[in-house]
Design a protein around this nucleic acid. Structure first.
Length: 816
RNA sequence: GCCGGGAUGGCGGAAUCGGUAGACGCAGCGGAUUCAAAAUCCGCCGCUGGUAACAGUGUGGGGGUUCGAGUCCCCCUCCCGGCACCA
C-alpha cells in the first residue's frame, strides 16, 4: 500500500532547499570543495556533454569531435568516508553479495608504495604544480607492485602533466600529440579500450634506487586526475606496459620468477595435448601444445609463464614467485621485496607505503538548467561564499526558455546578479546545478517527515529509519547505492540521523530488457521506436504505423533514451491487475534479468480462471460444510478418517505449501506461483462435489473438508501475488476470519511422513531402476534390497559389486 | 579493457547440501465436447535409433575432481549490467 500523504517531489523548492542548506554546512566544514575537473566539451554546440552523449568520440547532435576541457566543479569528499563505506559492507547481511562485492571493488582499497623518480635540474617555473621534496624536483608515481621497481624501463605521464607541458615547449611533434590526447571522451570505458598511444618526451628521470636514467613518455592512457598523473612501467610483468613496450620497441626487464608457473608449464608439457592460451599483452593467439610455445618463445619462457599466470587470473597475493635480476632483492618473496624496497625508499626520502583508493571524490556540478541550484555566490573580494540559511532556497526560475546552447541560467541577469552575503559588494550567483544523484541520495529519509518546514529532517526520521526493505534495479548497485550510503553518513555526522546505514535489506531486481529499434537519418541521428509500435516477422522489423522497416538495435535495459520501455497497463487493461501481477511474478525470479515478452500471459490468466471456477463449482459444498461445522462444533477434520488417495492428495497440498513457504523466504516468487498451480491441480483431482441434499453424509465429510482446507491454503499462499481474487473468493466461500487476519497456513508435518519410500537405483552412476523400502530401513537392509533387485541382477551379471553407495532417502549406487 | 552477473527443450523457467535433469507454465501435436468455432476438459511432448520394450545421448564449448557434476575446480566463447555527466 502506498501512503500518499508522504508523497514528495525532489524538484520542488520545499525539498531541495534542505539539500542546499546541507550543502552550505558541508562547504563550511570542508566536506565539499572546489577543484578543476575534466569534462566532455562539444565545440560546435558549445556545451558539456554527458558520457552517454559522446558516440565514437563525437557529439551526438553536432557530430563534432569532442574535446576534454577542464572546468571548476564542486566535489563531495567521499574519499574521506572510503574506509567506513568499505567496512560498513560487512554490517549489511541483508544485502546481496554481488552488490557488496561490486561496491568493495569500486572503492578499491589497495596498499602500495608512493615513490619518486628524481627530475634532473630544469627551469623550475616550467614545473608548476609538481610536488617537491627536499628542494629537489620529483616525479611521483603510485604502484601496488613495488617489488618490480627494479624492472622499470620507462615512466608514462598524462598529457596534462607539467613534465609533458615542459617538454612540448620546444617539441612541436610532442605538442601536437598532446593536443591529440585531449580529444575524445573522459569515460573510463573509452579510455580503457582506445588504442594505447605514446610519445617520448626526450626527458629522463633518475631511478630512485639505481640512479639509472629512465625515459619519460607521454601516454594517452594516463589520467592527470587519477593518482599522481604518472605511472611507472614494468613491461615484463604488466599486460598494458608490455603492449606499449612492444609497440614502441622499449626494453623489458624480467625481475620476477614464479616457480609454480614453471611447474604448471611442466605439467602442460607432459600432457602435451592440453590447449592453453598465451597472453602477452597483445593478442598472440592459441597454441596447441607447450612444445609449440617452447619453439616460439624459447628462452623467453619465463614471460610465457608469467602471462599464463595472468591468463589464469590468479590473485597476485597467491604468487609463489620471488625476485630475480634485482640486485640485493634477489630471492625475496613478493611481500618481502615490497617491504624491503619501501624501507629503502623511505630511508632515501623518496617514497613510503601508502593506502590508495580507486574511489574518487564525487563531482556534482552540472552545467544544465534543470536541477537544484548550487547555493554559492562568487565575490571578487570574498571568493566563494555559501548562501546564508535565511536566504535559502535559491529557487530555480521556471520562466526560462532554453535555446540549446549551454545553461540558460547564465543569461538570466536577475538570477546571476546578487550581492555578496559577507561584504555586500555586487557579486555573481553560481549557475551550475547539482547532479540529480544528490536528490536521490536522501529522499528515503524525507519520507519520514515530508511536511517538516523547520529543517531537513525531524525526530520522525529516527523513528522510521533505517529503511527495512529497499528495492531497486541492479544497475544502481554502485553509484546510487553508494551515494545514498555516503549521504546517510553525512546526515549522521550533522546530527540528523542516528543510524550508520540507510537500508537494512536490499532486493536488487534484475533488468527488464527489451529489443531496441531505430531509424537513422543521413547525418547519423537515430530515432528510436517503441517495441509496441514495431512488428517483428522473420527477423524483419517494421513500424506498425507506416509499414516501413526499422533497424533492430539489440536487447538492452528499458530506458527513455532508447524508447524500449513496455507499459504493463496494456496487460492490466486486457486481463486485470491480478493476472498482470501473477504473470510478472511467474516469469522469472526477481533478481534475474528478464527479456520482456508477454507470451504466456494467457497461461497466468487461465490459472486464475481455474481458481475462480473451482470456487464456484464447489460453492454449495463449502457453504454446507461451514454450516455443518457450526452445527457440529465437536466435529473436526481428522486425517485418520481419510482414505489413502485423499491422504495422498492432502500430502501433495502440504508439500507444496511447505515449498511455497521456502520459496517466499528465498524471494523466489516464480516457484511460489508454480506451487499454487500444483495445489490447484491436486484439488481438481479430488472427486466431484456431492450433489446438494446428500450432504452432510458423514462418509464424504473428509473429502469436502480436504477441499475446503486445501483451497483455504491456496488462497492464502496466492493472496500476496493476486490479492483481489484471493480476498474476493475467501469472502464468497464463507471462510473466517478475514483473509488478512486468518494467519499463514500451517504445514501438517505428520501428514508428510511416509511408511515406505522409493529410492533411485544406480549402477555405475547411471539410473537403472527404483526400489521401494521401509522409511526406517537400515543401510544394510537397503543395500541387500538393492542387490536383490531385478535391475541390479541384470547389470551385475553375477559379478560381485566393487562398492555400494547408499544415500539415505535418496539413492543407492552400485559400482561394478 | 576492468568489475559484477548469466547461458538448462521450440520459449519462460525448476532442480533446497554433489544424488531421478527438464517441476510449473507457454507454444505445438492428438483426442473429447460442439452443427461449427471459441472456451473448456483429457492425453502426448529434450534429441537420436527402435513398432515397442529399451538403448544411447543431453544443462554454451574444452579439460579436471568424484561411485556420481546443471551444481565443485581450471581455461575459453557469447550475452546482460556497471565503469564516476543516462539516472
Amino acid at each position: 500500500a502506498i501512503d500518499w500523504s508522504r508523497e514528495l517531489a525532489t524538484c520542488k523548492p520545499d525539498y531541495y532547499r534542505w539539500e542546499q542548506w546541507l550543502f552550505t554546512r558541508l562547504f563550511e566544514k570542508g566536506v565539499i570543495y572546489k577543484k578543476m575537473a575534466t569534462v566532455n566539451w562539444d565545440p560546435v554546440d558549445a556545451t558539456v556533454l554527458a558520457n552517454e552523449q559522446v558516440i565514437d568520440g563525437r557529439g551526438w547532435r553536432s557530430g563534432a569531435l569532442v574535446e576534454k576541457r577542464d572546468i571548476p566543479m564542486y566535489f563531495f569528499r567521499i574519499t574521506q568516508y572510503a574506509d567506513e563505506l568499505l567496512s560498513g559492507l560487512d554490517k549489511l547481511p541483508g544485502w546481496p553479495e554481488r552488490v557488496k562485492t561490486m561496491q568493495a571493488n569500486w572503492i578499491g582499497k589497495s596498499v602500495g608504495v608512493r615513490l619518486a623518480f628524481k627530475i634532473p635540474p630544469i627551469p623550475l617555473h616550467a614545473l608548476q604544480g609538481t610536488l617537491s621534496k627536499g628542494g629537489e624536483s620529483l616525479l611521483w608515481v603510485f604502484t601496488t607492485r613495488a617489488d618490480t621497481l627494479m624492472g622499470v624501463t620507462f615512466v608514462a605521464v598524462a598529457a596534462e602533466h607539467p613534465l609533458a607541458t615542459r617538454a612540448a615547449r620546444d617539441n612541436p611533434a610532442l605538442a601536437a600529440f598532446i593536443a591529440e590526447c585531449k580529444q575524445g571522451s573522459v569515460a573510463e570505458a573509452d579510455m580503457a579500450t582506445m588504442e594505447k598511444k605514446g610519445m617520448d618526451t626526450g626527458l629522463k628521470v633518475a631511478h630512485p634506487l639505481t640512479g639509472e636514467a629512465i625515459p619519460v613518455w607521454v601516454g594517452n592512457y594516463v589520467l592527470m586526475s587519477y593518482g599522481e598523473g604518472a605511472v611507472m612501467a614494468v613491461p615484463a610483468h604488466d599486460f598494458r606496459d608490455f603492449a606499449f613496450a612492444e609497440k614502441y620497441h622499449l626494453p623489458k626487464k624480467e625481475v620476477f620468477l614464479d616457480s609454480e608457473i614453471l611447474r604448471q608449464a611442466q605439467i602442460l608439457e607432459d600432457k602435451s595435448q592440453g590447449v592453453f592460451r598465451v597472453e602477452r599483452g597483445i593478442e598472440i593467439g592459441f597454441l596447441n601444445a607447450f612444445n609449440e610455445a617452447m619453439a616460439v618463445y624459447g628462452d623467453d619462457l619465463i614471460n610465457v609463464g608469467f602471462y599464463f599466470l595472468e591468463a589464469n587470473r590468479q590473485n597476485i597475493e597467491s604468487c609463489k614467485g620471488s625476485c630475480i635480476n634485482s640486485g640485493k632483492y634477489d630471492g625475496l618473496s613478493h611481500e618481502a621485496a615490497i617491504d624491503a624496497i619501501a624501507a629503502d625508499l623511505a630511508a632515501l626520502n623518496l617514497g613510503e607505503k601508502k593506502t590508495q583508493f580507486r574511489l574518487r571524490d564525487w563531482g556534482i556540478s552540472r552545467q544544465r538548467y534543470w536541477g537544484c541550484p548550487i547555493p554559492i555566490i562568487h565575490c571578487d573580494s570574498c571568493g566563494d561564499v555559501p548562501v546564508p540559511a535565511e536566504q535559502l532556497p535559491v529557487v530555480l526560475p521556471e520562466d526560462v526558455v532554453p535555446d540549446g546552447a549551454g545553461n540558460p541560467l547564465n543569461r538570466r541577469a536577475d538570477f546571476v546578479n546578487c550581492n555578496c552575503p559577507k561584504c555586500g559588494a555586487p557579486a555573481r550567483r553560481e549557475t551550475d546545478t547539482m547532479d540529480t544523484f544528490v536528490e536521490s541520495s536522501w529522499y528515503y529519509a524525507r519520507y519520514a517527515c515530508p511536511d517538516f518546514d523547520g529543517g531537513m529532517l525531524d525526530a520522525r526520521a529516527n523513528k522510521w529509519l533505517p529503511v527495512d526493505q529497499y528495492i531497486g534495479g541492479i544497475e544502481h548497485a554502485i553509484l546510487h547505492l553508494l551515494y545514498a550510503r555516503f549521504f546517510h553518513k553525512l546526515m549522521r555526522d550533522e546530527g540528523l540521523v542516528t543510524s550508520d546505514e540507510p537500508f537494512v535489506n536490499l532486493l536488487t531486481q534484475g533488468m527488464v530488457i527489451a529489443d531496441t529499434f531505430y531509424r537513422e537519418t543521413p547525418d547519423g541521428k537515430k530515432t528510436w521506436f517503441n517495441p509496441a509500435d514495431v512488428e517483428l516477422r522473420d527477423g524483419v522489423a517494421t513500424c506498425k504505423s507506416d509499414g516501413q522497416p526499422v533497424i533492430v538495435g539489440g536487447t538492452e535495459k528499458m530506458s527513455k533514451s532508447k524508447n524500449n520501455g513496455v507499459d504493463p497497463q496494456a496487460l492490466i487493461d486486457l486481463y486485470g491487475a491480478d493476472t498482470a501481477r501473477l504473470f510478472t511474478m511467474f516469469a522469472a525470479p526477481p533478481e534475474q534479468s528478464l527479456e520482456w515478452s508477454d507470451a504466456g500471459v494467457e497461461g497466468a490468466h487461465r490459472f486464475l480462471k481455474r481458481v475462480w471456477s473451482f470456487a464456484y463449482e464447489n460453492h454449495a459444498s463449502f457453504i454446507l460444510l461451514h454450516d455443518y461445522r457450526r452445527k457440529n462444533p465437536g466435529k473436526v477434520f481428522d486425517w485418520a478418517d481419510a482414505r489413502d488417495e485423499a491422504k495422498a492428495l492432502g500430502r501433495e497440498i502440504h508439500l507444496n505449501l511447505k515449498q511455497a513457504q521456502l520459496d517466499y523466504s528465498k524471494k523466489q516468487f516464480n516457484t511460489v506461483v508454480a506451487a499454487c498451480m500444483k495445489i490447484l491441480n491436486s484439488l481438481y483431482r479430488i472427486p466431484a462435489p456431492v450433489p446438494q441434499g446428500e450432504f452432510p453424509d458423514i462418509g464424504t465429510f473428509p473429502r469436502e473438508a480436504l477441499k475446503a482446507e486445501g483451497f483455504g491454503i491456496l488462497l492464502r499462499v496466492l493472496a500476496p501475488i493476486a490479492p483481489h481474487i484471493a480476498e474476493t473468493l475467501w469472502n464468497e466461500l464463507g471462510y473466517s476470519p478475514a483473509l488478512v487476519e486468518a494467519g499463514w497456513p500451517q504445514v501438517n508435518e505428520s501428514l508428510l511422513v511416509q511408511d515406505e519410500i522409493e529410492l533411485m537405483l544406480q549402477v555405475n552412476g547411471k539410473l537403472r531402476g527404483q526400489i521401494r523400502v521401509a522409511a526406517t530401513a537400515t543401510r544394510e537392509a537397503i543395500e541387500a534390497a538393492a542387490l536383490a533387485s531385478e535391475a541390479a541382477q541384470k547389470y551385475l551379471e553375477g559379478k560381485p559389486p566393487k562398492k555400494v553407495v547408499v544415500v539415505p532417502g535418496r539413492l543407492v549406487n552400485i559400482v561394478v
